[in-house]
């Protein structure tokens, strides 16, 4: 707020009220840009599917392209329907290669790892071609997965803007292998069976079905201890994850019928918690870090650039090797 007041003050001083001090730069003087291919893919030996999101950039100046929709989620503008189904997508390990097929429901390209296995220590190249554009990126899967050593798991009651919630609190440690560069990413989810409530307008009736889903932890990290860590200056030491937190799942209200809330009859059932430690390659770390740091709307900070390892395009093709620690639920 203060920063904007400062700017306002400057504008007032400069007689900014005067419109002629704001001028449009003629399009001929703007830097020329053309649309580029983008690709995003994260592969690991533990995955069952290789997925690649293929799209393209939209030049900012000139008319807004049609044929796609704008969606704003959490303040970010996201274009949907921007997939390029006609693109050709190939993955290769240097000896053999395979083509990925388009999955319309998910608007991405995929192939099963049964058809094209991903192996630790190997280098893969992804090639995307569309029209006369051709983008390419390579990544190497880290040699080994790093196992989780110890974890702590607690239930806390925390205050959230006046409301009290029961929250799971989680952290874990692992030993960094010495004499090699490592990058890590931590994840954790609770596997929960929960009800989906459907409402039949005609019959004024409620249907309830069960589904199993992954409910992810969110992480509060400080300084260098975030979800993404690097062993840059801490080679061979014991690493600690940031603190992961997640609300306990409670039966959700799906709506109101005749003034009374519709709540599922069966409460959610937790199967357990899965702790994931991803030993990633550099592109994975650099890309996620750059997106995390990208705050491009602050006039007083330098715009931060998003990492890319794609030649003749933008995006990232990265690999990781993942270890899992399963903590079964006590109630079960």
């Amino acid at each position: 707020m203060t920063r904007y007041s400062l700017l306002l003050m400057l504008l007032v001083l400069g007689n900014m009220a005067c419109d002629t001090l704001v001028n449009t730069i003629p399009e001929s003087e703007l830097p020329k840009t053309t649309s580029q291919l983008t690709l995003f893919s994260f592969i690991s030996p533990q995955d069952t599917l290789i997925r690649v999101k293929v799209s393209q950039t939209r030049p900012l100046f000139g008319e807004v392209l049609t044929g796609s929709n704008l969606m704003i989620i959490n303040g970010d503008t996201i274009y949907t329907g921007d997939a390029l189904p006609k693109a050709s997508v190939q993955i290769s390990d240097g000896k053999t290669s395979a083509a990925l097929t388009y999955v319309p429901q998910e608007e991405l390209f995929a192939i099963s790892t049964k058809q094209f296995p991903i192996l630790a220590g190997k280098t893969y190249t992804l090639t995307v071609a569309e029209g006369n554009r051709r983008a390419e990126a390579s990544c190497t899967i880290p040699e080994n997965a790093v196992t989780i050593q110890k974890y702590t798991l607690d239930t806390l009651v925390v205050s959230n803007f006046g409301l009290r919630d029961s929250t799971l609190s989680l952290s874990f440690t692992w030993q960094d292998p010495g004499q090699q560069t490592n990058y890590y990413r931590v994840k954790a989810y609770e596997l929960v069976e929960f009800s989906i409530v459907g409402f039949d307008d005609k019959n004024q009736s409620i249907t309830e079905s069960r589904q199993v889903g992954k409910f992810y932890f969110s992480w509060t990290g400080i300084a260098n201890r975030t979800v993404l860590q690097s062993d840059g200056q801490l080679d061979g030491t014991v690493f600690l994850s940031p603190q992961g937190r997640k609300k306990l799942e409670v039966a959700q209200t799906f709506g109101f019928l005749n003034g009374s809330p519709i709540t599922p009859k069966k409460p959610p059932v937790s199967f357990g918690i899965s702790l994931l430690l991803l030993n990633t390659d550099a592109p994975y770390y650099l890309f996620h870090k750059s997106v995390q740091d990208a705050r491009q709307d602050n006039p007083f900070s330098e715009p931060s650039l998003v990492y890319s390892n794609v030649t003749n395009g933008l995006g990232v093709f990265a690999g990781f090797n993942q270890s899992t620690l399963w903590i079964p639920s006590r109630e079960k």
Binding site: P31, R51, F61, Y79, Y284, H288, L305
Partner: peptide, 22 residues
């Protein structure tokens, strides 16, 4: 540094079981 174009980035960053982008 001025922006030249925009694009969507996709992160390996699951947040909820309702997420549509896998």
């Amino acid at each position: 540094t001025i922006p030249l174009s925009t694009y969507n980035v996709y992160r390996d960053n699951a947040t909820s079981p309702y997420n549509q982008f896998l």
